[in-house]
Design a protein around this nucleic acid. Structure first.
Length: 460
RNA sequence: GGCGGCGUGGCCGAGUGGUUUAGGCAGGGGCCUGCAAAGCCCCGUACGGCGGUUCGAUUCCGCCCGCCGCCUCCA
């Protein structure tokens, strides 16, 4: 069974599902007030692969990822641009899904929006107040972390050490500097909702508690997100669940940073690269490969050089797919079904063993590249069927990682096709100067020209 | 200040107490090819520094140096 790192224990431990055969996952999604950056791309890819792999393992996966469509950033932006918060959120949500589609990220099974759950949040906050875990001040409702057993679990620090590092704003009415806001009483500007504490809006941390518990139920399996969500966001979600005495996530999974010049990429540092920009410059699959080449908990450095290396690696896999004319295998193939579609059982087993080991995608990719080498080798050795079998295996496994390979050759327009046949004729007749001239023409049109036993082959 | 992580061959990036190597990219040599391209074969013998444990450490322990992160909105 899959073993995964759990931030709550700081160890890699077996994923013990609530319900046999079914996995429930909640991944914190974006706040839609700006274009997504490379860090958003990484977590989306990492959890997409986790989801695909669980499905490959034959599990029925329910994957919930939210859209935060109301918060201070959105309100600020709306005010600056003189339009509604809903318009701002809708615009950037559309950008978000475009980027996800381009990356080949499977749509979550549910994508709840925070604004649709505000009444539920009010009820949840009310329960916390009733239980004496939360309290009202002049500007809002706060959760009292002193009342929470094990606060600091995800930060892997105890309350005292967290408190010692906490920054305190003067004039705050919080009982502890670590207490966090559940409900913000209405201030000028921005939308409001009714509550027992007057009009206002929810703080950030409550929405994910409500949406995960409403949709997945108590004691769901995996809660994930970027490492910077571990504290305070996930810590504060957990605190609310503890305060309510409701079972929460069984397993906490966090992915590492995207780095830029040795520093964490983040909005606040202003050193981010937008995902949209990257997707315009590079093959989206190259970013997936770049992310998967490193372990999900390691930091990755994204530079023109590392992107280029990933594109070269991708070209190798594409070349294999072309040589063996491997079309993308049907999705939904499980590990158990893989041999039935012609995949090598031993390689599949080895791949699964890597992935079971805390999602060792670098090891899994090594397996795939090795298959590519073996496939070519077999074909060079006059064993085309064996080569094709290995190539099919590689393609099936790529699919589990969400990597689709370039299949058969592209369709050519009439002019290009004419050049190809003219060149083949020239080569057959020994007119190499003419053949080379046509190759030059084709290359000028952006084609890569390869000669095989069956004549000229083109690809982009 | 508290807590945590990292430092691997030209680059990216896994992994392990010792016999045979992660893998990719780039580079060199060879084969194949009319020439290329692609592919195949071969090659570099790396683990921040200093000690310690050990028959033996890149892998365990300690110290040091360097880098990064969290403790505040952040994927």
């Amino acid at each position: 069974m899959l073993r995964l790192h759990d931030t709550a224990t700081g160890t890699v431990r077996p994923l013990e599902l609530r319900e046999e055969g079914r996995a429930s996952i909640y991944v914190c999604g974006p706040t839609v007030y700006d274009v997504p950056h490379l860090g958003h791309g990484r977590f989306s890819l990492v959890f997409d692969v986790l989801r695909r792999f669980l499905e490959f393992r034959g599990l029925e996966v329910r994957y919930v990822s939210n859209i935060t469509d109301i918060d201070d950033h959105i309100i600020t932006k709306a005010a600056e641009e003189g339009r509604s918060e809903a318009e701002v959120a809708a615009e950037y949500e559309a950008v978000w899904w475009d980027a996800m589609d381009a990356l080949g990220v499977k749509r979550p099974t549910e994508t709840p929006h925070a604004t649709a759950f505000v009444p539920d949040m009010v009820r949840l906050i009310g329960s916390l107040v009733d239980r004496g875990v939360a309290y009202e001040t002049t500007d809002g409702v706060y959760l009292s972390v002193d009342r929470i057993d094990g606060y600091g679990l995800l930060a892997r620090q105890d309350l005292d050490s967290l408190r010692s590092g906490a920054r305190v704003d003067p004039g705050e009415e919080k009982r502890s500097p670590l207490d966090f806001v559940l409900w913000k009483k209405a201030r000028p500007g921005g939308p409001t909702w009714e509550s027992p504490w007057g009009p206002g809006r929810p703080g950030w941390h409550t929405e994910c508690v409500v949406m995960s518990l409403d949709l997945l139920g108590e004691d769901f399996d995996i809660h994930g997100g970027g490492l910077d969500l571990a504290f305070p966001h996930h810590e504060n979600e957990r605190a609310q669940a503890v305060g309510l005495e409701r079972a929460f996530a069984r397993h906490w999974v966090h992915n590492g940073w995207v780095m830029v010049g040795g520093e964490k990429m983040s909005k606040s540092l202003g050193n981010f690269t937008s995902l949209t920009d990257l997707l315009e410059r590079a093959d989206a699959r190259a970013y997936r490969l770049l992310v998967l080449r490193a372990h999900y908990r390691s930091p990755i450095e994204v530079t023109p050089s590392t992107i280029d290396q990933a594109e070269q690696g991708l070209a190798r896999l594409d070349d294999m797919a072309r040589r063996f004319d491997v079309v993308a295998p049907a999705t939904g193939v499980t590990a158990a079904q893989a041999p039935g579609v012609g995949a090598d059982a031993g390689a599949v087993t080895s791949f699964v063993e890597h992935m079971d080991d805390d999602l060792d995608t670098p090891g899994a990719l090594a397996e795939i590249f090795d298959l590519a080498r073996q496939a070519h080798s077999a074909a060079d050795d006059a064993k085309p069927d064996e080569g094709r079998r290995l190539a099919v295996t590689a393609a099936v496994l790529c699919n589990v990682l969400g990597l689709s390979l370039a299949g058969a050759g592209p369709s050519l327009d009439a002019d290009v096709a004419a050049l190809v046949s003219e060149r083949d004729a020239a080569r057959a007749g020994g007119d190499y100067p003419r053949a080379d001239a046509i190759r030059g023409q084709l290359e000028a049109l952006g084609w890569v020209v390869e000669d095989g036993p069956e004549g000229t082959r083109l690809h982009r």
